[in-house]
Every structure is written in structure tokens, then in C-alpha cells.
Design a protein around this nucleic acid. Sequence first.
DNA 1: CAGTATCCAGACCGATACTG
DNA 2: CAGTATCGGTCTGGATACTG
Lengths: 110, 110
Amino acid sequence: MTDKDKKIASPARPSVAEMVENIVGCKWSLRVLALVRAGVSRPGAMEHAVDGLTAKVLNERLKKLTRYGILDKTVYPESPPRVEYRLTAFGQQFSALLDQIERLEKVLQQ
Amino acid sequence: MTDKDKKIASPARPSVAEMVENIVGCKWSLRVLALVRAGVSRPGAMEHAVDGLTAKVLNERLKKLTRYGILDKTVYPESPPRVEYRLTAFGQQFSALLDQIERLEKVLQQ
DNA sequence: CAGTATCCAGACCGATACTG
DNA sequence: CAGTATCGGTCTGGATACTG
């Protein structure tokens, strides 16, 4: 975990602009968000799906996204352990940013 | 200028996702973008408007936003020199991200 | 499988001083 | 006023090794 992360441990309700800066500014965040949105819910699957993404960084991102109320974490007490991440209601709205980015992508391709 | 900046000097058309990561990841970028959008076009005015923003960092942001085709720079050959930055057509669409952020802000406040 | 601890090269950005 | 050069502390994130 980074120091930046620690600073928002007990946030005075960070603004969305701060969230966006802090989340999007971190490498892999958008990728991870897109994966969860696409139904890839398990960390192992995410790590496998994204070339170059390591477990350490992935966990940092998942933690941050969870702390911001964008993702929801579920732990199933099995062996081997199974964990799933899902978008929260707010996370679904937040991830609409991905749609707008995609829209801009098309603008650029013309 | 940072090394990250140099890498996109001759871009193979960076994706919007990369642009977003690279721009939003840089502190002050959203603030600067919002200022230009609000009609604050001169660097001096921007520096004066944002507490904590220094000329060096401001120029790095303006350069990057210009290189990405989001801003347009105009130099008036006067003395003292006058410079103005404006949103390009693409920049206007890009800065719609700010609207969505503002929308999310309201979602969060409920 | 999920998650953490440690290390460290390199990037970021704030301060300062400077040019045209 | 606009912009650059340089320095230096801090943070980032990739590699590796490890626990439960």
C-alpha cells in the first residue's frame, strides 16, 4: 500500500475529482475496473487476463477501489480460498466513465 | 518535462484510455482543464487562480494537454508577451469528462 | 488461490534561480 | 509575462520471496 492510500484511510468524504485523480492516476486501475465490469471477478483471473499486472499491484488497486466504495469484496470460506469482487451501485455509475472514454476513442478515430 | 512526457513525443496515436491515465494521473491536470474550459486562458491567470500550482508544473501540464490535441496555444508577439490557451474541438469533447465527474459528485452527496 | 513484505530504480513535483 | 534548468525529497510500481 502506498502512502497516498493511507492518507484516505479515514476520508472526510473525498470529492469525486480526488477519487478520479487518485484512482485513474494509478496504473492498471482502469483496466481492473473494466475487467470487473466485464464479469471477471476473481483476482487470479484478473492477474491472468492482464499482461504485466502483478499480484501486489492488483491487490493495491482492488483495495483502493473497495475503500472508495466502487467495488465490493466477498470471501467464500472454502479451501482453496475463493474471493470475488463486484461493482457496487456507485461503482456502476462510476464506471460509466469507461463508456465515455470509449466514446472519445471513436471520436479520435474519425 | 518528465520522462513520461517524452515517451509520447511522437505517439503511435495513443488510446484515449492512455491519455486519460497519463493526463489525469498528473496532479493539477483536471484543475487546469477546468480553468481553460471556464475561460481562463492565460498562464499567469491560471497560476494565480490555483493555490499551490507553480509555473513549472503548469507549463508541463499545458504542454502535455497541447500535445494531446486537447488545448491549442496562441502566442501574440507583443511586449510583454501574451499567450492564450483554448480548448480544441476534441478538447471540448474530452473535457466532458469533467461534467460526468460533477454528475458523480451529486450521486455521492445523496 | 489470495494476499503480504521487502527492496529499489525511476518518476513525480515542489522550490529556487534563471533567460528572453 | 512566459518559460526553462536544476536539484532533491517523496512516491510508484515491478521483481522476488514469502505466509495461510
